[in-house]
Design a protein around this nucleic acid. Sequence first.
DNA 1: AGGGGCTTCAGTTCG
DNA 2: TGCGAACTGAAGCCCCTC
Length: 780
Amino acid sequence: MPKVKFWLLDINDALIDGAPAIRLWGIDDAGRRVAIWDRNFPPRFFLLANRGEDPALILEGIRRLSRELCGILDLGLERKRYLGEERNVVRVVFKDHESLAKSAEALPNAKGVEAVLEDDVRFSMKYMIDGGVRPCSWHEVEVQEAPIEQSIRVDRAYEAVSPPRVIESQGEGPSLRSLAFSILCPGSRGSPRPSVDPVRGIFVESGSGEGEVFLAEGDRDSSAIRGFSEFIERADPDLIVGFGSNRFDWPYLMERAKLGGIHLKVGRGGEPPHRSVYGHISVTGRANIDILNLMDDIPEVKQKALASLAEFFSIIRKGEMPDLDEVELAREWRNAGGREHLREYFVKRTGVLMKCHETLMDFAIALSNITGLPLDQVAAAAVGFRVDSLMMRGSRMLGELIPKREERPHVAYKGGMVLQPKPGLHENIVVLDFKSMYPNLMMLYNISPDTYCPPGEDCSEAFEVPEVGHRFRRGRDGLYRAVLSKLMEERERIKEKLKGIPKGDPSHKVLAERERAVKILLNACYGYSGWTGARWYSKEVAESAAALGRAAITKALEEARGFGLEPIYGDTDSIFLKSGPKIEEYVERVMQETGIEIKIDKIYKRILFMESKKRYAGLLESGDLDVVGLEAVRGDWSGASKAMQEGMLKIVLSEGGPNGALEFARSYISDVRSKAIPFRDFVIWKTLTKPMREYEVKAPHVEAARRLLADGIELGPGDSVGYVITKGAGKIHERAKPYAYATIEEVDAEYYINNQLIPVASRILSIFGIAVGRMLESPG
DNA sequence: AGGGGCTTCAGTTCG
DNA sequence: TGCGAACTGAAGCCCCTC
């Protein structure tokens, strides 16, 4: 039987002659695009038998019923674990999805059945989990050649004879073909509406740097859309990349295509794009990726705009490519010469998008490979679903059944401990961090939903968590320990490999991005355990991890005194100590006492604390300024207050006193008063977190959004509103104006001085006993 | 009517 | 559509004084 090696790019379920089948899309080791049918995996679920119930009776009962329930191919008894407990289950295999769905509805009420399990796992996901198939991994599969259907755009098509198997550590992935695109749709009135506003241009760029532009002819965009669709067919990309394309570009194109009677044949089977899980758009046989989704994994970039991301990656210089909003775009479209300008802008934008994609792809591929979510899904999936997938994979290793996703009410619990900082300037401060504190504590004490021992149950030799009293079984590894230790080992393995690879080498980046993916997942597991939507939700687990964390940091604080080290501050897993000679000894002691590793994370030559927790600024040994939590690093303050604060902090920390900073603030405020700073530094950005109609209060950003809404600009949850406060009487929200509508002349400098600058300056100066009061309000 | 003091709402960041 | 802790500004309310 011939064998094929392939790298899995996409997977979907389909029907062949009415029978369920899986289609795997990939690239073989000769770079050919391949499609592989697998019809050897009929849908299935498990019936969990009640404790003490003879599962054979259930099985018999179903066999009797099966005339009515029809469509059952196979039944079998198995022993599996469910939340740690060994249980009897009945495996039920169906000929098709409809039969499974019917039975899943009827059987939970059958006699002796506690629950139907794993019917709520997507078919293609269950196929991969049960078969050990993994996205963005190399596999080997026995096949027979199948004729290439006329509509299928691949080099080879096969039929799987046996299940594909992952080939471990096959090294790097294949070279993938990418296509980036963006669409230009200025709104004729307010936001563009597909019912009336045509697509004026579609801009594409392939990975090799070749671009193509499809322009509407007058108001007719049919040929442009058709041209785009044909271009995709011709270029046959593996990855289709957009920015905000799940929410805007694709839905818009789909709607315009519908109106124009055009078939968007973008899938490898000639399919149109379709809406899939996690609200993303899926293109069969390819991976559709929205870079905007991946930006959530880069918290350093505050503004969710392509320009901000490109600046962060140093793909463009600051201010090189503006980010035009809908108002500016429509305005430019109407301007003389604006259309030519917009075309140039979109060509540039699409090229920048491609470069961002190239920078991000190693990360996305690693994330897909580790979590087991297909590449296009993993980008769009929220943290909780990524970990859910990771856990489902882990559960198979332990023979654990996958619990149902349930709707549960939110239950709060006590979290990490934060110390009150000692305000003022401190010198030579060492920051010690517990390394991956929550994951390590959960591993150390086997904290997991399947090792939890409820009150009243006899669990000999269980470990009891201090303060909260929850008990967890020792002995057999729990799911969390199993999953976390695999991640931890992977991280160590990557670190080891990285040592032998020079930094500029492409494989260095692949590994470094993989390490970042592992790290993100490691850190997400604790939060996942306390998320009520998690399949393996357990308040006791999350609460215990938090309690163990508090115990660890408390222990570290107690020990500090004995080593002559004075704690200045601490938050969750870190403590800030005034450096002393016995620090190494101390680190050893804390590790002995807590069982988890603690290391020196940072050393501040000088650090400034105010009265608040979670906010400080320090000078690192390198001479770099490190600002944490303060306005200067927040996205919801004006550029003016951020710039002034950063300037003041630099001076205070380098001079060791407030005098220079006071002068700096004075002069900065006078610049603001005379408007000698750029307009954009007056703009305040805030994100809408819910639909406009649900706002009960008149907040400034909400009122600014209302003004846009009045002009037909549609804004919803997740959209950012940039506004300035203008001169005049009345409440602040009455004077908030979308920045695109305002000029620098209208800006109320006094508002910025009183509400954005003085509070910020006085928080710093008051530490030194300088009461700001009116001192900064008028010049001199 | 207007101000002080307090609570609530909203958004964002830390770890 | 990970968690809780924490901060801040603005609005919104009550209460008091005038």
